[in-house]
Structure formats: C-alpha cells, structure tokens
Design a protein around this nucleic acid. Structure first.
Length: 801
DNA sequence: ATAGGGTTAG
C-alpha cells in the first residue's frame, strides 16, 4: 500500500484515495499493518484539510469509520464515531462488528446513539446482530422498542431479522411460530420474499413433526420464490435428520439452482452419506452445473473424513485443471480442506506445501496444519507451529494439549493447560478432557480431582468427553469408586464410557464385575465394539477367567459381527499362557485366519516363559527376531524364558547377543522420595538416543520438588548404576519397598511415589496400601501395570529386567 | 447504512 502523495490533496482526491483504500480492503486481513498505516496517513490529511465532519462531505467520515472497523482499530473508529453519533455510521459499525462476531461492541454503537435519533434501519441492524449471535430474547426486546417508539414502523427487514432471531429460541414450539406468523401477516410484511424465507426457516427449526407441513404451506403460498426458498427447505430437512425429504425437495426443483446442489451435497456429507454426495457431485460435473468453492469444500471434506484419499486427489486435480478464479477469501476454505485431506492421507509434506502457497490464511488454516502434525506424530514440529501461529483460538490450545497427551508428554500437557488459563483463554470440555487424561497418566489424583471440581462449576457435567476422561483418570489413579460415581451420574453414557468403566473394573482385579457390566451394556442395547472386547478379554486376563474369555471371544463374531484382530488373538493367547495351556495356544495359532503378527508371537513367547516350553518359545522368538530385529523386548523376553526353564547359559547368551547386535535397551527412570532426598534411578542404556530426554526428566523432577517446597532441601541423587547393581536393586518390589527404601523410617507427612513403568501384582499393591495406612502417609502409585495373578518371577523386577 | 442459505480445523 503506497502512502498517499505528499502534495496537499483537494477533497476529491481524498475521496478517491479512500475509495481505493476500500477496494483494497482484502489487504486489511492479509497485511493489516500496512493497511492501517495508509489509513492513518489519510486520516491525518483529511484533518489538515478540515474535511472531517464537514457537512458537505458526511460520507468521508463514515467511510473512514468503516475502514477503521475493518482494520480492527476499534478505538479509532469509536473515537471518530463519538464526535458525531449519527445513526447511519452507527448502523455500519453495528453490522461490521456483528459480522466479526463482536456482539457487545456492536450493541455499544446502538447505545451511543440518542434514542430520538435512532431510525428503523439502525434497529434492524441490531436485531440481526443479536440473531447472528443466537440471542433471541434481546432481539425481541429491540423489536419491541422499535414498536414502542411510536414514530417508527418495522419494515420487511425488521421482520426478517426478528424471525431469524426467533429461530434460536430454546423451546421453539409451533404455537410460537404461528404467533409470529400472525403478526407478520397483520403488519402486511407477509408478501416479502425474505420474510417468507425466514418463516420457512423458522418452522423448519421446530422439533414438532407437523411443523414441516406449515413450512410447506408458507412456501406454496409465496407469490415468488428464489433459490434461497428451496435451499432453506433442503437445509431444514437435513438438520431434522430427514435426508430423504431433503432429497425429494431437491428433485422437485430439478437442479435449477446451483446453491441447492451445494446444500444437498453438504447435507449428504453431514449425514455421513459420502457415496451419495460423490454421486451428486459426479452429476454436477456431467451436467455442467457450475462448481464453486462451496461445492469443492464439501466434497473434499467428505473425501478427507471417509479416507477416500484417491478420490480427493482427483478432485484436487480437477481444481487445478479448471483453474477457477477464486478470490483469496473464497479459496481459503478450499485450501484449508485440501490441507486436511493431505495431512489425513499421511502426506504431511504436501499439506505443508499447500499451506505455504496460500495467499490468505486464517485460524482454521493454522489449526489444520497444527493438528496435521499432531496426528502424524510430529510433536516437535507441532510445537514449532504452535509457537509461530500469528493467532490462536481455544481449539489451537486444545489440539496442542491433547497432542501432548497422545505423545506421552503429560507434564507438558498440564504445563500448557496452566499457561492457557494464565492467558485467560477459557478451556472447553475437550481441553479439560486432555488435562484430565494427563493427570491420569501422571497419577496426579489430587490435581485430577481439582479439575473435576472446575468442570462441575463450569457446567460441563453433561460432557461425554470430559466424563470419559474422568473415568479413565480415576481408574489409573486407583480410585475405582470415584470412576464408578462419574459413570453413574453421566447423563448420556456412550460406548466409550462403558468401555472405560469396564476397563477400570478389569484393571483392578474386579473381573467378574467387569463382565457383568459388559452384559448390562449389551442388555441396554448398546453395541459393543472391538475396543469393548479388548477390554473384556483383558479383564478376563487379570482375573484369570479362562472359560469366560473364550465365551466372549466366540460371541464377538457370532453375535455382533466383529472380526477378531491380532490384538484380540494376542490377548486370548496370553490368557491361555497364564492358565498354563500352552499347547492350546499353539493350536489356536493355526486357526488364525492371517499371518501371526509380532504381538501374537510375543504373547506366545511370554506364555512359554511361564511353562518353560523352549521349543515353541525359541520358534516364537525366531519369528519375532525376523519381524522386529531391533526390538529390545524380544531379547529380554527370550532371555527370561530361558531363565524360567533353568537354562541360565542360554539366557546369558541371548543377552550377549543383544549387546553384540547393538540393540539398545530403552532408557527410563524410576524415582522415589526418602526423607529430603529424591532417589532417581536411571535404567536402561544411557547411550540410547532418547537418554537425554530421561536426563531432562530427572532435572525436571528435581526442580519440581524444590518448587513445590514440601521437601525444602530436596536433593536429587542420580544413580547411574552398573548392570549388576541394577539387578540387585530392582530385584523385588516388596523387598525394595520395605527394606531397600526404608519406607517405615520416613518422616511423618512425607509423600512416597512408587516408580514408573513397573509390573506389580495385586498382592504387592495391597502391601503398599497396607504400609501406607500403617504409617499414615499418602502413597501414590503411578503408571504401574498391575497383575492379579502372578507366578514366580512375574511381579518381581527380574521380569522387567 | 440493515435481511435470509450452502464451506473449512477437533
């Protein structure tokens, strides 16, 4: 934007420049700072020429206000306006702010105009501002004030705006609609096309089935109809979930209006009927119906959601061929959807290229690329994007918080969540769900409970995402009762909630109760999914319920048509292995309708460890080595199998092999607080590429302890031990807990956190709880996998090592 | 100067 010429401009030149500035208003969004600079320059010139507020040029001030509004320089616009609060300027300001979604600002301009100066048009603008914001009651109040003014009369616009506001009434009944309909007819506004359209939309919003008939009557009595009339009908039926009726309205106009095509396609997309949407799109192409940005956006989003990636690419190709002349604003949603398509199709690099090439980007674009990186598990890249985003909204924070949770970075998730609240961004229920999941991951029961309290305060109790997260969090923290309480009070539980609750019971050894709950779910008519069955099989595993496991495994396919996947087979084999029926497990492999996968061989191998069946074990290990040669678990499992069979030499040979092959043991750490010291044990290979992350975590632990201040002189003692020392220290839980760490010698009030990533049996868990009670201290057990049934060596860390 | 429909991120 070049600055205006330096020479003094006559009024005419000023108005020309203003108009040119307005024409380049797209710059206001793409390059706001240079636009604003030019605008201020012009403003100064108008002032020096004495043209502002000149009675001969009222439009100059008006246009200036409008442009300031466009550039979001609200104070400047307001200042100009206050010097002369004329209704025309107010109308323009109200409309601009309402369009930008700033309702309070919009209304403030209405309020600033003295009531005697307000005209009908200004009232109309405010009514429609409320309508846009779904605020029916204040819209009606403004309409009433219009009637009460005495001198003013509502016109067609007033009624159109009033009706569209009324469509947002919470319990809209046919009676309401009929009353409004009557007052429209009495005023004589009934003949206007826009009023008729608004009436149809109003009736179609009613839940009552007979409302559609009334809408149809309005339509039939309208002297003239336009494409909006039909579109409203189609959209109304789609929203009511009656795609069939929408389709017959669509057939009735026989494709005469382009927008109705778009409405029908998007209706199919919203109803999850992608195939029908594609079919309609094909007919549009064949029938040479003009395709616009709305068509492309709907079809592309259908492709992205249904993983019809190839079809999406061909639509993209079509766009490239047609070279449609979209304005940057029109191309924006199309490009946003393309970015979604490619990132969901796993082509994040292509998505990034499209993103880079976009002339105009908005929050949606940035959120799309952000979640693209999160879903492609490129968390570091996502963080980078998050930091450089020019604008964020609540969704951006939500994506990042839940991205951290999925990337196993719970601490970062909580940090971000707190930061977000410090920035005064109000988290939605999904964001709370992410933070709560992070608490579950960390075993931070207190913090989780706190968030639960906030949820209740904020009125998010009815939210399923938050409720499901709470169930899982409480279960992970060992608070099954609380989990159950959440489950019971949830107003509309879904299959995720059931699965979470069943799994909560199963994890804590309540196998029978878990199975009962599953049966109850089926009895209530909820269809179990593959996750439900995974959960049920795990519950059987924890409780050692072999026959029940088989019973549910068989019913899965028979009763619900769910094809068992590798994970289901692996759990079943696990179950057999635990019961000592390794021969049956061997037979089961033969019945699997696909090639056994690593997780199945792993289950076999760990079954063999319990039974010392070295022949099968060695075979399973062979298969595993072939499939995942660098997987440390295989070596450890095989070595343990040999140990269990008493073949120590072979066990040592496997470990040597692992070293020789250069397979790195994944690093991890365990930590425990004793007195004023935090003992941290670094386990695994310190040369592993991920070891620095563990060191980082250790530093964080220390810093956190000091910050919390509950142990004033906390020292972090790093134990980077020799292998033989590790095996000694991590030999057995109960031993370690009782003796090794001197639990009973702890000072009163100390908190003990028991290790990360250990397998622990129900008996040990009970022992810890008992000790905790005995010494009157809180003990948090975090991220511990618990086994109800265990044999020698299973619970001890000899297994882990 | 004001109205009404069809689009995108989880």
């Amino acid at each position: 934007m070049p600055p205006p010429p330096a020479a003094a401009s006559p009024p005419y030149q000023c108005s020309v420049l203003l108009r040119r500035l307005a024409a380049s208003s797209s710059l206001a969004t793409s390059s706001p700072s240079s636009f604003l600079r030019a605008l201020r320059c012009l403003h100064a010139r108008l002032l020096t020429c004495g043209l502002l507020h000149a009675p001969s040029h009222p439009h100059l001030t008006l246009r200036l206000i409008h442009l300031y509004t466009l550039s979001r320089d609200v104070p400047a616009a307001a200042l100009l306006f206050r010097s002369n609060p004329c209704p025309i300027a107010a109308t323009s300001l109200v409309a601009a702010h309402a369009a930008a979604g700033h309702l309070p600002a919009a209304v403030s301009f209405f309020d600033a105009v003295p009531p005697a100066r307000r005209d009908t048009v200004l009232h109309n603008a405010v009514i429609s501002a409320y309508a846009r914001a779904s605020r029916a009651a204040p819209a009606v109040a403004v309409f009433r004030s219009l009637l009460a003014s005495g001198s003013l009369r509502p016109d067609d616009y007033s009624f159109t705006a009033l009706l569209s506001a009324a469509a947002h009434l919470p319990n809209l009944s046919v009676r309401h609609c009929a009353q409004l309909h009557c007052s429209v007819l009495k005023s004589g506004a009934g003949g206007a096309l826009s009023v008729g359209n608004a009436l149809i939309a109003l009736y179609m919003k009613c839940d009552a089935p007979e409302a559609t008939r009334d809408a149809r009557n309005v339509l039939d009595e309208m002297p003239a109809k336009d494409e909006l009339t039909w579109t409203t009908m189609v959209v109304g039926y789609v929203r009511r979930g009656d795609v069939g009726a929408a389709r017959s309205v669509f057939e009735e106009v026989d494709g005469k209006f382009d927008v109705v095509w778009n409405a029908m396609i998007s209706g199919y997309v919203q109803s999850g009927m992608a195939t029908e949407a594609f079919e309609l799109f094909r007919r549009m192409v064949l029938g040479r119906v003009p395709l616009d940005e709305f068509t492309f956006t709907s079809v592309l989003s259908a492709c992205a959601n249904t993983e019809f990636f190839v079809l999406g690419k061909s639509v993209h190709g079509q766009i490239i061929r047609l070279q449609p002349d979209f304005a940057p604003e029109a191309a924006l949603p199309v490009n946003n959807t393309l970015v979604t398509l490619y990132s969901k199709g796993g082509k994040i690099a292509v998505a990034q290229r499209i993103f880079d090439s976009m002339k105009l980007k908005d929050v949606v674009s940035w959120n799309t690329i952000l979640s693209g990186y999160v879903e492609s598990s490129c968390l570091d890249k996502a963080v980078e994007v998050f930091k450089e985003m020019p604008y964020k909204n609540e969704l951006s924070w939500m994506v990042m918080v839940s991205g951290y949770v999925h990337g196993w970075r719970a601490e970062d998730a909580l940090k971000l969540f707190n930061w977000m609240r410090a920035e005064d961004v109000k988290p939605c229920d999904y964001t709370y769900a992410g933070a709560i999941a992070a608490c579950g991951e960390l075993g931070a029961l207190k913090h989780g409970k706190q968030l639960h309290g906030h949820l209740v305060q904020l009125g998010f109790e009815g939210s399923n995402s938050a409720g499901n997260a709470l169930i899982t969090m409480y279960a992970k923290c060992g608070a099954v009762k609380e989990a159950h309480l959440v489950f019971v009070v949830m107003p509309n539980v879904d299959s995720v909630s059931w699965n979470a609750m069943i799994s909560a019971l199963g994890q804590h050894g309540h196998g029978r109760e878990a199975l009962d709950l599953f049966d109850q779910m089926v009895a209530e008519g909820i269809y179990p999914d593959r996750i439900s069955y995974l959960t049920v099989l795990s519950a059987c595993n924890h409780a050692g319920l072999l026959d029940e496991g088989f019973h549910y495994f068989e019913s899965m396919k028979r009763d619900f048509g769910i094809i068992p996947g590798e994970d289901h087979y692996a759990r079943l084999i696990d179950l057999l292995g635990r019961a000592g029926q390794i021969g049956e497990a061997r037979d089961l492999i033969k019945t699997i309708p696909f090639e056994p996968t690593p997780s199945i061989w792993e289950a076999i191998l760990s079954g063999c460890r319990n039974n010392g069946d070295m022949e099968l074990g060695a075979y399973a290990a062979d298969q595993l080595f072939k499939m995942t040669p660098q997987h440390d678990g295989t070596y450890i499992l095989l070595s343990n199998t040999y140990s269990a069979a008493g073949r120590w030499v072979d066990a040592a040979r496997v470990r040597k092999l692992m070293r020789d092959q250069g397979v790195k043991k994944e690093p991890g750490c365990s930590w425990i607080e004793v007195g004023n010291k935090v003992h941290v044990f670094l386990v695994g290979d310190t040369k592993h590429p991920e070891a620095h992350e563990v060191y980082h975590f250790l530093e964080m632990v220390g810093a956190k302890m000091r910050k919390l201040g509950y142990l004033p002189d906390t020292k972090v003692v790093l134990h980077d031990m020799e292998p033989h020392e590790k095996e000694h220290i991590l030999f057995s839980h109960s031993e370690r807990l009782a003796v090794g760490f001197g639990l009973l010698k702890l000072p009163p009030g100390a908190t003990v956190t028991v290790l990360k990533n250990l397998k622990i049996c129900a008996d040990c868990h009970a022992a810890i709880m008992f000790m905790s009670k005995a010494v009157g201290r809180e003990i948090v057990v975090r991220d511990v996998r618990r086994f109800h049934h265990f044999k020698d060596g299973e619970c001890s860390c000899g297994n882990y090592w």
